[in-house]
Amino acid sequence: MFSFCTDPSTLETYQWFACYFTTGKHANFYWAFVTVLLLLAVTAPTSLAMGFGGASAARSRIAPVRWLGHGYISVVRGVPDIAFFLFFVIALDQGLEFLRHSALCPDWDQPIRQGNDFIVCDAAKLPLGNAPQWVHEVYGFALAVFTFAIVFGAFAANVLYGAMQAVPRAQLETAEAYGMTHRQTFWRILVPQMWVYALPGLSNLWMVLIKATPLLFLLGVEDIVYWARELGGTANPRFTDYPHGDWRMWYFLFLLVFYLAFTRVSEVVLERLMNRLTHGQATTGGEAQRKAA
């Protein structure tokens, strides 16, 4: 990075650190922060969509769809996310490859499972065997996003289901009395009104999501915890120009500060948003605002 970095062992402390913090390995560490933020940015709307689907299904008038919705919510919520993460990604990957295999290679005559091996034809591989590395990375990232979305979608579904139930019955009955169809009542009356009730739960969920990101390494994404461990571990002079002792403590301290700051900022922003949303609403919060003004 800097021209004086050629022989780190001769450097003064501040220069040594300047070089140390700009190694390619550290660049990976900084890049991991971008990955985590990106994951949060993509996962949040995806989970919300899954949650919306789940909650709508749980309210459906068709019994099997309703069971499916409730089943999804309670099964995923009943299992620790870590257990889910440990096998779901492989299952998902194999499932997708199997589907592609059935579609793309109908005349394949060998079994897909040969002993322990899972073999599909080359055209069905995801990503294709000769795809460049970045495609593999994007695919891995997409699987991680999807897994997170499944887990957090169930929680979001639970929140949204509760919020839908919280919308006063009278509102829906009035809509029906006006001759609206079920579909119209749902989209024009229920959905716009439920957000106020859902926001406290959803903001909590956002905080949970932030705090679940250290588990990303289980999904094969090299996240900040992975790099903090890798960089903080004892660096032996034989294998690096920057030998040091066990510095994991400091790296984790940095992560701790990062997470505390991140959750704090989210808290403040969400509080403001809630104040906005409750403004003028016929809820206790709205009433309090009116009195204070």
């Binding site: 390619g24 390995k25 890798e230 294998f239 690096t240």
Partner: peptide
């Protein structure tokens, strides 16, 4: 990538 000297990540990552 975590078992020197067999395999590890160097300074360049």
């Amino acid at each position: 990538g975590a078992y020197p000297p067999f395999n590890f990540l160097n300074d360049a990552g």
